[in-house]
């Protein structure tokens, strides 16, 4: 099983992280009009490195909290370009850009995974 996981490489981790980031960006867009809401995001490169280096974090006791992504993530706060009076730091232009970039990169990772899986499939068939 491990060799298959190694074959899929970084894209398996990247895909889960991209999905989590999509959820965060969607939360930001949902709260675009809420006073005092602070926009949040993750440092993708750092988180990916963390996930690739140590693998998913395990719990050893039934009473431990399970981290939602399987990896402890540092959810950071965004630094606004134009702070608004009501304390909201969501800027729709920024969030939309980040969201479209993130979905595109998710798509890219998905495409890579698909190609790797079909590569494995044709190796198994041996045709």
């Amino acid at each position: 099983m491990n060799s298959i996981r190694d074959h899929l490489g970084i894209h398996a981790n990247a895909l889960t992280l991209r999905e989590k980031r999509n959820d965060l960006l969607a939360s930001n867009i949902a709260n675009a009009a809420t006073p005092n809401f602070k926009a949040r995001d993750i440092d993708f490169a750092a988180e990916l490195q963390k996930a690739s280096a140590s693998g998913p974090m395990q719990t050893s006791n039934a009473r431990h909290f399970v981290s939602s992504a399987g990896v402890t993530r540092d959810t950071l706060y965004r630094d606004p370009v134009n702070p608004s009076l009501d304390g909201n730091t969501v800027e729709l232009a920024v969030e939309q850009m980040q969201f479209s970039e993130n979905t595109l990169r998710y798509h890219a990772s998905l495409q890579f995974l698909n190609r790797k899986i079909s590569g494995l499939m044709s190796a198994m068939r041996g045709e």
């Binding site: 895909l15 999509n22 960006l25 969607a26 867009i29 949902a30 675009a32 009009a33 729709l92 939309q96 969201f99 479209s100 979905t103 998710y106 798509h107 998905l110 995974l113 698909n114 899986i117 079909s118 499939m121």
Partner: peptide
């Protein structure tokens, strides 16, 4: 105008993510 724009934004998010989810289910 602001409310309708933000409504559209949320709708767009759902549409995009739904397409991605559907593609992910076709993986492999």
């Amino acid at each position: 105008m602001e409310a309708s724009r933000q409504y559209q934004n949320n709708l767009q998010v759902v549409n995009t993510l739904r397409t991605l989810m559907a593609r992910t289910m076709q993986m492999g």
